[in-house]
Design a binder for these strands. Structure first.
Lengths: 108, 108
DNA sequence: TTTTAATATTGCAATATTACGATAATAATT
DNA sequence: AATTATTATCGTAATATTGCAATATTAAAA
């Protein structure tokens, strides 16, 4: 025991959870906000911006990329990172739907 | 090492991360979707719905409540749970802003 | 081709999460 | 008062995450 019972939930539930989980760390939120500010940048820029070591930043970037929240394009020996709008659209749509349903409900 | 460096990030970044983290598990997404379907319910209903033991469900409800995603009202010896729209509004607003900014950007 | 620059990966310690059996707490019911 | 119903808490094992030093990888530059 201890491992998440992924197989008992729907693909959609797992998809939303994976994306949300990737955003569930302040460093990764800070990376997203930094990308939003500078449009695009390389890993080293983020290392200079955040109070974290290079391997740690690299790991956070990997998780954001795996969840589809950012894109990384190789440019010479560096990698250019930027936000992947599509995945944020999925989230926005998901939460918009939740809000529209709750508007018709009355809470206990 | 091992602990998140919360103090190095802004309150807003930590707030969004805490909410996202609470949604970062398929069981908690399933609980939200069930509440959305039935409007309100008690813990035992969720235990019957999900393939998880009662203490596990109780723990997940606690995390959702701590993050402000659900509300729990005592009704006799049971507790009536329902979605807390306000917190989802925060998320929707946050992601809407991200999307509107990225629309003006060009990715690498 | 050696050096430099930029990232990724490995390995590991510290910490956090997940899940559940056992048990406690609380309030209604008998 | 004893029983029942409902939920929370405790304790613990299994697993996952976080962070970083050391090292590897890759491609440009000297």
């Amino acid at each position: 025991m201890g491992a998440t019972k992924t197989e008992h939930f729907t693909d959609k539930q797992n998809q939303i959870a994976i994306i949300a989980k990737a955003l569930g760390h302040p460093a990764r939120i800070a990376i997203i906000e930094y990308l939003l500010k500078v449009n695009e940048c390389i890993c080293g820029d983020i290392v200079n911006e955040l109070p974290l070591a290079q391997p740690t930043v690299s790991q956070h970037l990997k998780e954001l990329k795996n969840a589809g929240l950012i894109k990384g394009n190789i440019e010479g020996n560096a990698i250019c990172y930027c936000i992947n709008e599509e995945t944020f659209d999925i989230l926005k749509g998901y939460f918009s739907n939740i809000i529209s349903v709750t508007k018709t409900q009355k809470c206990c």
